[in-house]
């Protein structure tokens, strides 16, 4: 029986199923995907250029109206990425820590955060914070995004650290390094390479999810679009531009990540 299973398993094709919130990462290896990426990316840019030329009213006004929002979206995204990397690293280390309370806190944090929708978290943090301290809307948004993504990125760090072969830690310890030195000098440098692709994915997902902060009176790209539409009633046109701009940004980012991945493959260091 065991043998039959063995054979069956050998006969099955090896498939890795990767599903994430990010866009597909186009690499040159996958021709179809790369072509699809080009069509979507250049199509979106062409459309965004053509629309104000063909129909200046209202597209020209919309395009002049939303750049502030793009800047805010970038601001929220990059600050949230920065802080969630810090939180994520600490969480990842906490999740593998041998100190029980530390491990517990990190694990509970991940469990709780992953069990609550981001939108609910944002509302909660926004109004919970408002109850005790007055913080600007954008700060609340960044805190909310950080708390949420810190947990996800923590899991990426954890998986990355665990994927470094055990022998690396042993060799470092055998040389007299302390555990924390071994992690800093031997394990983490190797982890970074492994987790770069999933991290990139997470960044794209974060950028897209940053549109949720428009609910918190943060004037990001989506909210600027909505503001425009609510005065001019050009809902269709405004959201078309908003969608195109998001698409261009995420496709651009995913291509950059694809390039980084290809570089890392050819130059394994």
């Amino acid at each position: 029986m065991a043998q039959i299973n063995e054979k069956l398993r050998a006969a099955l094709p090896k498939v890795t199923i990767e599903v994430s919130d990010g866009t597909l990462i186009p690499g040159k290896g996958d021709k179809t995907l790369f072509t699809a990426w080009r069509i979507a990316f250049f199509g979106a840019i062409a459309t965004l250029i053509a629309l104000p030329l063909l129909k200046p009213d209202p597209f020209k006004d919309i395009i002049l109206f939303i750049p502030d929002g793009v800047i805010t979206t970038f601001e929220v995204t990059f600050l949230a990425i920065f802080f969630s990397l810090i939180v994520g690293l600490l969480t990842g280390l906490g999740r593998i820590s041998r100190i029980r309370p530390v491990n517990m806190i990190a694990t509970v944090y991940v469990e709780v955060v992953r069990g609550i929708p981001l939108l609910v978290q944002l509302f909660y943090i926004y109004y919970a914070l408002a109850k005790f301290v007055k913080v600007p809307d954008i700060t609340a948004a960044i805190i909310g995004m950080t708390i949420c993504y810190g947990a996800y990125i923590g899991e990426i760090f954890r998986a990355g650290i665990l994927s470094v072969p055990k022998g690396q830690m042993e060799a470092a310890l055998a040389l007299g390094l302390s555990r924390s030195q071994a992690i800093r000098k031997v394990v983490l440098p190797q982890t970074v390479k492994i987790i770069l692709p999933p991290l990139g994915n997470e960044f794209i997902a974060l950028l897209k999810d940053s549109s949720l902060v428009s609910i918190l009176a943060v004037a990001d790209l989506l909210r600027r679009g909505r503001e425009f539409a609510s005065t001019s009633f050009d809902y269709f046109e405004a959201y078309t531009v908003v969608a195109l701009v998001y698409l261009i940004i995420t496709l651009f980012l995913s291509r950059i990540i694809g390039i980084i991945e290809e570089r890392m493959k050819t130059n394994a260091r």
Partner: peptide, 20 residues
């Protein structure tokens, strides 16, 4: 134990060199 390990070098079957 760190002091002890400094004085006892170890060589592994799978080398375990640091690849980075």
């Amino acid at each position: 134990i760190r002091k002890i390990r400094e004085e006892a070098g170890m060589v592994f079957q799978s080398f375990n060199l640091f690849p980075h």
